[in-house]
Write a protein that binds this DNA or RNA. Sequence first.
DNA 1: TCAAAAGTGTTCAGCGTACACCCATGC
DNA 2: GCATGGGTGTACGCTGAACACTTTTGA
Lengths: 245, 245
Amino acid sequence: MTTDNKKNKVENINTWISDLNSDAKAAVSVDCVIFGYDEKELNVLLIDCNMPPHLGKKSLIGDLVKSHETLDEAGLRILEQRTGLSDLYIEQVRAFSELGRHPLGRVISIAYYALIKIKNYEIKDSENKQLQWVPLSKISELAFDHNKILNDCYAQLKRRLRERPIGFSLLPKKFTLIQLQKLYEIILGLELDKRNFRRKLQSTGLLIDLNENQTDVSHRPAKLFSFDYEEYRKKKTFQSISFDI
Amino acid sequence: MTTDNKKNKVENINTWISDLNSDAKAAVSVDCVIFGYDEKELNVLLIDCNMPPHLGKKSLIGDLVKSHETLDEAGLRILEQRTGLSDLYIEQVRAFSELGRHPLGRVISIAYYALIKIKNYEIKDSENKQLQWVPLSKISELAFDHNKILNDCYAQLKRRLRERPIGFSLLPKKFTLIQLQKLYEIILGLELDKRNFRRKLQSTGLLIDLNENQTDVSHRPAKLFSFDYEEYRKKKTFQSISFDI
DNA sequence: TCAAAAGTGTTCAGCGTACACCCATGC
DNA sequence: GCATGGGTGTACGCTGAACACTTTTGA
């Protein structure tokens, strides 16, 4: 190591310390695309935007990240505050940082998506209707760059649905194969063949046949299954498991 | 809309304005995993870390994001400052935000990876040897959470190599199929069958046979090809193109 | 003529895909 | 008994994987 080298090091440390306390800091927010599934449609939880110039539009659910929390923790906190639900599946998608994206100044936003069974959930401040489930197909212009964020999160959801067992978190613990197929069809926007779909998902060996049937239906009752998370965790550590259909 | 509703809106705006100017701000950095390919190995550009308690370790190349630039712009600036190269391929991977990740306080870092042909590039401050190409296989403990960042970026590189024509940005404009195959083998860590590899990549219809040969090799000279970026841009808008092998 | 690396086709198994009829229940 | 949706097996084509010999050049 040369003297030059040492000098560089000291300069670098000092530079960083002063930078960290200057206006190099930015406001950082988390925006969540909260997908809600009701066995008919895929919905997104939106809120009325109250910030000019986006008044009258809807926006995703977001908040600034606090100094004591990670991004994942901020995402979970936002979800719990808005929906009362914890232990939801969330996943980071990517950061958005266009300079003009927020009217109040520089805000870098990290996008997450989350998955909710709508049945399990009652909107907290439903009295004033600021929060709404909106079917994905009916979402038009959102505030800020939230259409971009939504697109990226939806694309990631579709990719992940084929890779990981996330569909099961949108269904009751006991579900029929028809329910599962419909979920895949609605999220992916495809029609699937019943026999091929069943063969593929059952070939994972992770669907537990509960030997129970639906009741109170006016047709042949469907068999009920549950997903074997336990076995999935074991298997995935030493083999790759796909949920592609 | 009720009066309650209006009141909420005003409060929200005010909250945001004050939050944006408070300590809700965080230092935001970009860390780049700069992959350099020399037709023998995959290397990563590392720098000696000069920050306690990580003195003596190496770290990825990074810097704080400035208030007037997007994250992509910050990534490109860092690359240009360190390597003198512009117009490189970069891609965002994800944000890292663990509370203890940086010794000087809260720093949220957005990870990028970049691709460089090592031939094209001479390390700028090579006199003091702070910057070094290190073969991926020889990288051990890095500073901060940079091993995690490296792992995630390498995983993304491997995924993308199968999806997009990024391998060609690591080879000369005119390349042989053997060079291309070796690149895939080294990056993916696999051995590939020569005939199957050729068939698959040539079936994209995007390799231009230049009707030229290698010269000055002491064996049968290989044919030279180039990649048809023009055609790729056209095709990909209306069909999905894979570079899986 | 030898060494070194380039180039080239075919076979087979497994997977994805397409497809039509019978079954169990409530009314 | 009929309407409603649930459940099941097979045939075919395509794609991925395995595999060995000939060709061209420089030394």
